[in-house]
């Protein structure tokens, strides 16, 4: 069956189940003989993890690594609701703690890398930003993450460490949204991760500031309980936290542990 036909019939089955409020279990998953490893990872890890996934698949015949990249808290919710997952990599310890509290970790989580904040300005730095203090100037369009998400919590920490009060024009949902506002020139400056500046290339310029060290964001990883591929999942975790994984992560601006 084509993919489209399969999706259509799956949706139809779901509607029938909704009508019947239950009914027979359908197990119509593809009967291919490849094993697919489901890796749920924080959105900021997309580029290095895709590279790691290819490296992993190259070493393991018949293994296909499938990623689900999203905000860490979204991923925890999805795993709690029963999304098939073998590995979970979080962008902060808080969301890993949520998974552990729910008893869904397959092994002790390992801190495998870290990321810090950086000021991003559009190419050419039109507003002449030099440091954190210049972000409080009148008329400067500053965009940050909302305090509810990890990068926003880190922003609040550096704000306090520097003794400043920002008045941003927007508190975005994710660090990618902040970066987009800077690359499109809508914002004069934004607070994003070092890795985001690296990813944006020549569209933005990054400015380091010492207070960033007060809010180092640590990334933990673990296997997920009841994984059907527990052995493979552990091997993937080992690859990420081992020297080969660290080299790839460093290449994207992450700082190894």
């Amino acid at each position: 069956m084509s993919r489209l036909a399969r999706s259509f019939s799956a949706a139809a089955v779901v509607m029938l189940l909704a009508g019947g409020c239950g009914g027979p279990d359908d197990s119509t998953s593809g009967a291919e003989d490849t094993v697919s490893l489901q890796v749920h990872a924080a959105a900021s890890l997309q580029e290095p993890f895709e590279e790691l996934g290819e490296a992993f698949a190259a070493e393991h015949d018949g293994v296909d690594v499938q990623f689900n990249f999203a905000g860490s808290s979204t991923l925890v919710q999805q795993i709690q609701q029963g999304a098939p997952a073998d590995v979970f990599a979080s962008a902060n310890p808080e969301n890993m703690d949520k998974l552990v509290e729910a008893g869904l970790q397959g092994s002790e989580p390992v801190d495998f890398t870290s990321n810090t904040l950086m000021i991003a300005v559009p190419a050419g730095n039109p507003a002449g930003v030099t440091d954190l203090t210049s972000l409080t100037e009148d008329g400067l369009h500053l965009v940050v993450c909302a305090p509810e998400v990890p990068c926003g919590a880190a922003t609040e920490t550096v704000e306090q460490a520097a003794g400043l009060t920002f008045s941003p024009v927007s508190e975005e949902q994710s660090v990618t949204d902040v970066l987009n506002k800077v690359t499109s020139g809508e914002a004069d400056a934004g607070l994003v991760y070092v890795t985001d500046v690296a990813k944006a290339g020549s569209a933005v310029e990054g400015i380091e500031f010492p207070e960033a060290q007060e809010a180092v964001n640590i990334y933990p990883i673990t296997t997920v309980k009841d994984s059907e591929n527990a052995g493979l999942a552990q091997e993937f975790v080992d690859l990420v936290s081992g020297p080969a994984g660290q080299e790839i992560l460093d290449g994207y601006g992450f700082v190894g542990r």
């Binding site: 909302a146 927007s170 508190e171 949902q173 949204d177």
Partner: peptide
């Protein structure tokens, strides 16, 4: 969220 941003009371 793409065009207006997100700030309490404004957008």
């Amino acid at each position: 969220i793409t065009f207006a941003g997100s700030l309490q009371g404004t957008t």
